[in-house]
């Protein structure tokens, strides 16, 4: 089947029910998306399908056919999206393993809500577990990124 991932077309030979996560990781070698629970409980495997955050560990690859899939590798070629920069400026990661999923969830939040409150952030990020405990820094990074993204928007308009 044909998949469009990070604006590139890929051909994969996979059964329809194979989770998108394992297609990305094992068939296409895109290892930035991580496995955490296999049940859609921890958010580690979050990717976007047509701009919507999806838990790729429970999303059959068939769902992604004729869709735009975005993974952590597609957020910004150099890693310079304001969210990624804010993540680094706040020294968010500890082990780093869940951060791809965290960033993908944060990206979705900020594309729908440019000025999230603490509660908005809690609710958007509640599906993403970080066992190291980087939540306070994630929250701060989201707020910092929101500011920069709003300034950028202002500058463009």
């Amino acid at each position: 089947m044909e998949l469009k991932i990070n604006n590139q077309i890929h051909q994969v030979d996979a059964p329809d029910e194979m989770p998108l996560l394992w297609v990305l990781r094992d068939l296409l070698g895109k290892k930035g998306t991580k496995f955490g629970c296999g049940q859609g409980l921890c958010g580690t495997c979050t990717v976007h399908v047509n701009g919507q955050p999806m838990r790729s560990c429970i999303t059959p690859v068939a769902v992604a056919k004729n869709s735009e899939v975005t993974t952590i590798e597609g957020v910004d070629e150099q890693g310079n999206h304001p969210i990624q920069i804010a993540w680094r400026e706040n020294n968010v990661p500890q082990c780093g393993y869940c951060q791809s999923g965290q960033i993908m969830s944060a990206l979705n939040l900020l594309s729908n809500n440019s000025t999230p409150t603490d509660q908005d952030i809690d609710s958007a990020m509640s599906g993403n577990i970080c066992r190291c405990g980087t939540y306070p820094r994630i929250k701060q990074a989201i707020k910092d990124a929101a500011k920069v993204m709003n300034q950028n928007k202002g500058a463009k308009s």
Partner: peptide, 18 residues
Amino acid sequence: PIVDLHDMTTGKATYGID
């Protein structure tokens, strides 16, 4: 800042499972 900071924000950091 930690050595792997950039890689951890771009999905390039490599773990045992990778």
